[in-house]
Simulated scan of single mutants.
Amino acid sequence: MRFAPLSLSLIALCMAVSSHAATPPAPPLTSGAAAQALYAQWFVPQSAQASTSAQQLQSQLQQYCTGTASLEKVRGDFTQASQDWERLSAVAMGPQIEHRTARMVDFQPMRLPLLKAALRKAPKDLAAMETIGAPAKGFPALEHLLWVDVAAPKTPTCQYARLVAADLTQELQELHQANQAAANFTALDFDSTAEFLNQWIGGVERLRWQAMEKPLRSATASKPAQVTRAASEGTLTSWKAQWSGLRTLAIGNPQMPDNVSLARLVEVQGWQHLADELRAAVQQADSAMQSIDKVSLNAITPANKALKQLKHLVENDVALSLDVTIGFSDADGD
């Protein structure tokens, strides 16, 4: 079960109420203020970075398709843009869920027959791209066209790749604008701590089970593991980018100790020992994640174990300290 963001009607109602009330702003890290802090301190800057990187990829691909930039440079920009997206999307809240951004920019696995059909259709502009299904667009389709069936400059395939990048950029720009609106919405007064905690746990499971363990367990001698960014050999960096987002939202950034995080929320409730325990568990998981050196079940086993232990701590002790009920998510694994 996912905790849904505020509906537009509810937002409008809250805005109407707040316009007639003279209530002063909530102190830091209460429900509404914590929500604003989360958007202002994490989702806004991270979506800005993801949007900027996507725009750089689009620009570089445009140059490549005209024959004035190298394939290596485009591939480098793809890697940067995809990692910025993965860091941002590690915890999905509010506009990201409402806009279904993950489906639109990172539908996995990419559907090759649909991509071939889209290439035959040869859309001419972004308006025409709206008729192309998500399984033939986004990062996975672009990865395929940059590493597998490589789009040569000055070809219709390269033109399609350019439109995929432009469509991706537009989606991430819209997400950034929506995150800015959420951060500026002074009446954000919903159960943000519960949503944050549940979606963070869901993010851990998406990484631990859906991204890492499940595809490796499903692989056979005739069917390679369908792991993220396999074509570009970027699977490990993809996993670690997702983890970096989860890690920061769990224990914060040492340079910004007062920014909202799970550990900070626990601290302001007076549970200092538990906050320290949480930080220790995150550091243990971090060491295990950084030690993964290849895409195999044996290589991920220590990280898998550490992530399970961390999830258990958050689901039980952290949730209890914050008076949060944990729901089931479609990311839940075994």
Rank of each mutant, 00 (worst) to 15 (best):
G32W: 05
G32H: 08
A33I: 08
A34K: 00
A34E: 00
Q36R: 13
A37M: 08
A37E: 07
Y39S: 02
A40Q: 11
F43K: 00
V44E: 00
P45H: 08
S47N: 10
A48W: 03
A50Q: 03
A50F: 01
T52W: 06
S53V: 08
S53K: 03
S53I: 01
Q56V: 07
Q58D: 14
Q58S: 11
Q60I: 12
L61Q: 05
L61G: 00
Q62E: 14
Q62N: 15
Y64V: 03
G67F: 10
T68A: 13
T68Q: 13
A69W: 07
A69Q: 15
S70Y: 07
S70I: 02
S70T: 08
E72K: 07
K73I: 07
K73G: 09
K73M: 01
V74C: 04
R75W: 01
G76S: 06
T79G: 05
Q80W: 04
A81F: 04
A81E: 01
D84T: 10
E86Y: 01
R87Q: 12
L88A: 09
A90R: 00
A90D: 05
V91Q: 05
M93V: 15
M93R: 00
G94C: 07
P95C: 09
P95D: 05
Q96H: 08
I97V: 14
H99D: 15
M104E: 11
V105E: 07
F107G: 00
R111S: 13
L112M: 11
L112E: 06
P113L: 12
P113S: 04
L114E: 06
L114K: 09
L115V: 00
L115G: 00
A117T: 15
A117M: 13
A118N: 04
L119A: 12
R120Y: 08
K121H: 15
K121N: 15
A122D: 13
P123T: 13
K124E: 14
D125M: 09
D125H: 11
A127F: 04
A127V: 11
A127R: 10
A128S: 12
A128V: 08
E130C: 13
T131Q: 14
T131N: 10
I132H: 00
G133F: 10
A134M: 02
